[in-house]
Protein backbone atom coordinates (compact mmCIF):
# COMPACT_ATOMS: atom_id res chain seq x y z
CA UNK A 1 0.00 0.00 0.00
CA UNK A 2 1.46 3.34 -1.00
CA UNK A 3 1.68 6.23 1.42
CA UNK A 4 -0.75 8.28 -0.63
CA UNK A 5 -3.30 5.51 -0.44
CA UNK A 6 -3.14 5.63 3.33
CA UNK A 7 -4.73 9.07 3.55
CA UNK A 8 -8.48 8.56 3.62
CA UNK A 9 -9.67 12.14 3.92
CA UNK A 10 -7.63 14.88 2.33
CA UNK A 11 -8.91 18.43 2.57
CA UNK A 12 -6.62 21.01 0.95
CA UNK A 13 -6.83 24.80 0.82
CA UNK A 14 -10.53 24.68 1.50
CA UNK A 15 -12.53 27.90 1.52
CA UNK A 16 -16.22 28.33 2.21
CA UNK A 17 -18.12 31.58 1.95
CA UNK A 18 -21.80 32.31 2.39
CA UNK A 19 -22.29 35.67 0.71
CA UNK A 20 -19.81 37.94 2.44
CA UNK A 21 -19.48 35.69 5.48
CA UNK A 22 -16.40 33.49 5.37
CA UNK A 23 -16.57 30.17 7.21
CA UNK A 24 -13.35 28.44 6.16
CA UNK A 25 -10.23 30.00 4.65
CA UNK A 26 -7.34 27.92 3.45
CA UNK A 27 -8.22 24.97 5.65
CA UNK A 28 -6.12 21.79 5.45
CA UNK A 29 -6.92 18.48 7.08
CA UNK A 30 -5.72 14.94 6.54
CA UNK A 31 -7.06 11.78 8.15
CA UNK A 32 -5.26 8.47 7.74
CA UNK A 33 -6.79 5.02 7.62
CA UNK A 34 -7.70 3.60 11.01
CA UNK A 35 -7.68 6.91 12.87
CA UNK A 36 -10.40 8.04 15.24
CA UNK A 37 -10.54 11.80 14.91
CA UNK A 38 -12.74 14.19 16.84
CA UNK A 39 -13.60 17.52 15.26
CA UNK A 40 -14.46 20.28 17.72
CA UNK A 41 -14.97 24.02 17.57
CA UNK A 42 -17.31 26.74 18.77
CA UNK A 43 -20.72 27.33 17.26
CA UNK A 44 -20.49 28.77 13.77
CA UNK A 45 -16.94 27.57 13.11
CA UNK A 46 -18.21 25.39 10.31
CA UNK A 47 -17.80 21.88 11.70
CA UNK A 48 -21.01 20.60 10.23
CA UNK A 49 -20.37 22.53 7.01
CA UNK A 50 -16.96 20.88 6.70
CA UNK A 51 -18.54 17.49 7.26
CA UNK A 52 -21.17 18.14 4.61
CA UNK A 53 -18.51 19.30 2.17
CA UNK A 54 -16.44 16.16 2.74
CA UNK A 55 -19.54 14.03 2.18
CA UNK A 56 -20.31 15.83 -1.06
CA UNK A 57 -23.56 17.38 0.18
CA UNK A 58 -22.50 21.01 0.02
CA UNK A 59 -20.12 22.61 -2.48
CA UNK A 60 -17.12 24.48 -1.04
CA UNK A 61 -16.20 27.86 -2.55
CA UNK A 62 -12.62 26.81 -3.25
CA UNK A 63 -10.11 24.08 -2.51
CA UNK A 64 -10.15 20.35 -3.00
CA UNK A 65 -11.59 17.49 -1.01
CA UNK A 66 -10.50 13.91 -1.60
CA UNK A 67 -12.37 11.17 0.19
CA UNK A 68 -11.01 7.63 -0.28
CA UNK A 69 -9.03 8.94 -3.23
CA UNK A 70 -12.04 10.47 -4.99
CA UNK A 71 -12.14 14.18 -5.65
CA UNK A 72 -15.64 14.72 -4.29
CA UNK A 73 -16.35 17.85 -6.31
CA UNK A 74 -14.79 16.94 -9.66
CA UNK A 75 -15.42 13.22 -9.96
CA UNK A 76 -17.94 11.87 -12.46
CA UNK A 77 -21.22 10.39 -11.28
CA UNK A 78 -20.24 6.66 -11.37
CA UNK A 79 -17.06 7.29 -9.37
CA UNK A 80 -19.01 9.31 -6.83
CA UNK A 81 -21.67 6.63 -6.55
CA UNK A 82 -18.97 4.01 -5.97
CA UNK A 83 -17.33 6.16 -3.30
CA UNK A 84 -20.65 6.76 -1.55
CA UNK A 85 -20.91 3.03 -0.91
CA UNK A 86 -17.61 3.10 0.93
CA UNK A 87 -18.47 5.49 3.75
CA UNK A 88 -21.30 5.76 6.24
CA UNK A 89 -22.78 8.80 7.91
CA UNK A 90 -24.77 9.15 11.09
CA UNK A 91 -26.78 12.35 11.08
CA UNK A 92 -27.40 14.19 14.31
CA UNK A 93 -31.04 13.19 14.73
CA UNK A 94 -30.55 9.85 13.04
CA UNK A 95 -32.39 10.77 9.85
CA UNK A 96 -34.02 7.36 9.77
CA UNK A 97 -36.70 6.95 7.11
CA UNK A 98 -39.79 7.36 9.22
CA UNK A 99 -42.04 5.31 6.97
CA UNK A 100 -39.87 2.19 7.28
CA UNK A 101 -39.20 -0.10 10.20
CA UNK A 102 -35.72 -0.03 11.70
CA UNK A 103 -34.89 -3.32 9.98
CA UNK A 104 -36.09 -1.95 6.63
CA UNK A 105 -33.99 1.17 7.22
CA UNK A 106 -30.88 -0.95 7.68
CA UNK A 107 -31.81 -3.19 4.76
CA UNK A 108 -32.34 -0.27 2.34
CA UNK A 109 -28.68 0.23 1.31
CA UNK A 110 -28.18 -3.54 1.14
CA UNK A 111 -31.16 -3.98 -1.15
CA UNK A 112 -30.16 -1.05 -3.34
CA UNK A 113 -26.48 -1.72 -3.73
CA UNK A 114 -25.73 -5.36 -3.09
CA UNK A 115 -26.80 -8.73 -4.33
CA UNK A 116 -27.44 -10.08 -0.84
CA UNK A 117 -29.43 -13.35 -0.95
CA UNK A 118 -32.94 -12.61 0.36
CA UNK A 119 -32.92 -15.38 2.98
CA UNK A 120 -29.62 -14.10 4.33
CA UNK A 121 -30.73 -10.46 4.51
CA UNK A 122 -32.57 -10.59 7.89
CA UNK A 123 -29.54 -12.20 9.51
CA UNK A 124 -27.22 -9.57 8.10
CA UNK A 125 -29.57 -6.82 9.28
CA UNK A 126 -29.58 -8.36 12.75
CA UNK A 127 -25.78 -8.44 12.75
CA UNK A 128 -25.73 -4.73 11.88
CA UNK A 129 -28.16 -4.00 14.70
CA UNK A 130 -26.06 -6.08 17.05
CA UNK A 131 -22.87 -4.28 16.02
CA UNK A 132 -24.62 -1.01 16.83
CA UNK A 133 -25.67 -2.42 20.20
CA UNK A 134 -29.35 -3.06 19.48
CA UNK A 135 -31.22 -6.30 20.02
CA UNK A 136 -32.87 -7.94 16.99
CA UNK A 137 -36.43 -7.21 18.15
CA UNK A 138 -35.78 -3.48 17.73
CA UNK A 139 -35.75 -4.19 13.99
CA UNK A 140 -39.53 -4.56 13.91
CA UNK A 141 -40.19 -1.15 15.44
CA UNK A 142 -40.83 2.13 13.67
CA UNK A 143 -38.31 4.95 14.19
CA UNK A 144 -40.97 7.04 15.98
CA UNK A 145 -41.18 4.37 18.68
CA UNK A 146 -37.47 4.62 19.56
CA UNK A 147 -35.77 6.76 22.18
CA UNK A 148 -33.14 9.28 21.09
CA UNK A 149 -30.23 6.99 21.92
CA UNK A 150 -31.77 4.03 20.12
CA UNK A 151 -32.46 6.17 17.06
CA UNK A 152 -28.80 7.07 16.92
CA UNK A 153 -27.77 3.44 17.29
CA UNK A 154 -30.19 2.47 14.53
CA UNK A 155 -28.68 5.21 12.37
CA UNK A 156 -25.22 3.75 13.00
CA UNK A 157 -26.52 0.30 12.09
CA UNK A 158 -27.75 1.73 8.78
CA UNK A 159 -24.46 3.57 8.24
CA UNK A 160 -22.62 0.27 8.79
CA UNK A 161 -24.81 -1.64 6.34
CA UNK A 162 -22.44 -1.61 3.38
CA UNK A 163 -19.25 -2.35 5.36
CA UNK A 164 -17.98 1.22 5.10
CA UNK A 165 -14.31 2.04 5.42
CA UNK A 166 -15.01 5.45 6.91
CA UNK A 167 -17.71 6.38 9.38
CA UNK A 168 -18.79 10.00 9.91
CA UNK A 169 -20.82 11.01 12.93
CA UNK A 170 -22.41 14.36 13.68
CA UNK A 171 -22.74 14.91 17.44
CA UNK A 172 -23.42 11.27 18.33
CA UNK A 173 -23.74 11.90 22.07
CA UNK A 174 -25.72 15.15 22.04
CA UNK A 175 -29.00 14.83 23.86
CA UNK A 176 -28.04 11.55 25.50
CA UNK A 177 -27.69 10.90 29.20
CA UNK A 178 -24.08 10.43 30.36
CA UNK A 179 -24.37 6.67 30.79
CA UNK A 180 -25.76 6.15 27.29
CA UNK A 181 -23.20 8.61 25.95
CA UNK A 182 -20.31 6.65 27.48
CA UNK A 183 -21.69 3.43 26.02
CA UNK A 184 -21.71 5.24 22.68
CA UNK A 185 -18.06 6.16 23.11
CA UNK A 186 -17.27 2.51 23.70
CA UNK A 187 -19.21 1.59 20.57
CA UNK A 188 -17.15 4.03 18.50
CA UNK A 189 -13.91 2.76 20.03
CA UNK A 190 -14.98 -0.80 19.23
CA UNK A 191 -15.88 0.02 15.61
CA UNK A 192 -12.56 1.77 15.24
CA UNK A 193 -10.34 -0.88 16.84
CA UNK A 194 -12.11 -4.16 16.08
CA UNK A 195 -13.61 -3.45 12.68
CA UNK A 196 -10.79 -1.14 11.64
CA UNK A 197 -13.09 1.71 10.62
CA UNK A 198 -11.72 5.19 10.18
CA UNK A 199 -13.97 7.41 12.29
CA UNK A 200 -14.47 11.17 12.04
CA UNK A 201 -16.76 12.47 14.73
CA UNK A 202 -18.03 16.01 15.26
CA UNK A 203 -18.63 16.32 18.97
CA UNK A 204 -18.85 18.67 21.92
CA UNK A 205 -18.62 15.95 24.48
CA UNK A 206 -15.44 16.39 26.52
CA UNK A 207 -15.68 12.84 27.83
CA UNK A 208 -15.69 11.51 24.30
CA UNK A 209 -12.65 13.62 23.51
CA UNK A 210 -10.68 12.58 26.55
CA UNK A 211 -11.60 8.91 26.60
CA UNK A 212 -11.57 7.68 23.01
CA UNK A 213 -10.36 10.36 20.61
CA UNK A 214 -6.68 9.82 20.00
CA UNK A 215 -6.59 12.86 17.78
CA UNK A 216 -8.50 16.08 18.22
CA UNK A 217 -8.86 18.71 15.52
CA UNK A 218 -10.00 22.15 16.66
CA UNK A 219 -11.65 24.44 14.11
CA UNK A 220 -11.76 28.18 14.63
CA UNK A 221 -11.38 31.41 12.69
CA UNK A 222 -11.79 29.45 9.47
CA UNK A 223 -8.77 27.23 10.03
CA UNK A 224 -7.49 24.30 12.03
CA UNK A 225 -6.45 25.93 15.32
CA UNK A 226 -4.97 22.82 16.86
CA UNK A 227 -4.43 19.21 15.89
CA UNK A 228 -3.12 16.43 18.10
CA UNK A 229 -3.79 14.39 21.21
CA UNK A 230 -5.86 15.87 24.03
CA UNK A 231 -2.69 16.81 25.94
CA UNK A 232 -1.16 18.52 22.91
CA UNK A 233 -4.33 20.42 22.12
CA UNK A 234 -4.68 21.63 25.71
CA UNK A 235 -1.21 23.19 25.49
CA UNK A 236 -2.20 25.38 22.55
CA UNK A 237 -2.37 29.00 23.54
CA UNK A 238 -5.78 30.00 22.27
CA UNK A 239 -8.47 31.60 24.40
CA UNK A 240 -11.27 29.42 23.05
CA UNK A 241 -9.33 26.16 23.53
CA UNK A 242 -8.23 27.22 27.00
CA UNK A 243 -11.71 28.09 28.19
CA UNK A 244 -13.12 24.97 26.53
CA UNK A 245 -10.86 22.65 28.50
CA UNK A 246 -10.88 24.86 31.61
CA UNK A 247 -14.55 24.10 32.13
CA UNK A 248 -13.53 20.51 32.67
CA UNK A 249 -10.24 20.96 34.49
CA UNK A 250 -11.82 23.09 37.19
CA UNK A 251 -14.45 20.52 38.01
CA UNK A 252 -12.55 17.83 39.98
CA UNK A 253 -10.60 20.37 42.05
CA UNK A 254 -13.50 22.36 43.34
CA UNK A 255 -16.84 20.65 43.08
CA UNK A 256 -19.63 23.11 43.63
CA UNK A 257 -21.38 22.70 47.01
CA UNK A 258 -24.73 22.24 45.32
CA UNK A 259 -23.47 19.23 43.40
CA UNK A 260 -22.17 17.65 46.54
CA UNK A 261 -25.40 18.07 48.48
CA UNK A 262 -27.37 16.49 45.65
CA UNK A 263 -24.92 13.61 45.57
CA UNK A 264 -25.26 13.22 49.34
CA UNK A 265 -28.98 13.36 49.09
CA UNK A 266 -29.30 10.40 46.80
Amino acid sequence: MTAGNDVVIDVAALATRFGTQSVHQDLDLQVRRGELVALIGGSGTGKSVLLREILGLQRPSAGSIRLLGTDMWNADAPTLAATRKRFGMMFQEGALFSSLTVAANVATPLLEHTDTPPEFLPKLVNLRLSLAGLSPDVGGKMPAQLSGGMKKRAAIARALALEPEVLFLDEPTSGLDPITARAFDQLLAFLNSDLGLTVLVVTHDLDTLLSIARRIVVLGRGKVLADGTAEQVMQVDDPWIQSYFASRRAAPDAPAPATRSIADGT
Binding site: K123, L124, N126, L127, S130, L131, P136, D194, L195, G196
Partner: peptide, 23 residues
Protein backbone atom coordinates in the same frame (compact mmCIF):
# COMPACT_ATOMS: atom_id res chain seq x y z
CA UNK B 1 -4.87 -10.41 13.10
CA UNK B 2 -7.37 -7.97 11.59
CA UNK B 3 -9.32 -10.74 9.84
CA UNK B 4 -9.38 -12.85 12.99
CA UNK B 5 -10.78 -9.91 14.96
CA UNK B 6 -13.63 -9.47 12.48
CA UNK B 7 -14.50 -13.16 12.57
CA UNK B 8 -14.41 -13.11 16.37
CA UNK B 9 -16.68 -10.06 16.52
CA UNK B 10 -19.24 -11.81 14.34
CA UNK B 11 -18.89 -15.10 16.21
CA UNK B 12 -19.65 -13.31 19.48
CA UNK B 13 -22.86 -11.94 18.01
CA UNK B 14 -24.03 -14.98 16.09
CA UNK B 15 -26.82 -15.61 18.59
CA UNK B 16 -28.31 -12.18 17.92
CA UNK B 17 -28.59 -12.71 14.21
CA UNK B 18 -31.12 -15.53 14.23
CA UNK B 19 -34.17 -14.10 12.54
CA UNK B 20 -37.29 -14.15 14.67
CA UNK B 21 -40.57 -15.53 13.36
CA UNK B 22 -42.06 -13.46 10.57
CA UNK B 23 -44.84 -11.15 11.79
Amino acid sequence: ARHARIVEVVRGRLGDTVAGPAP
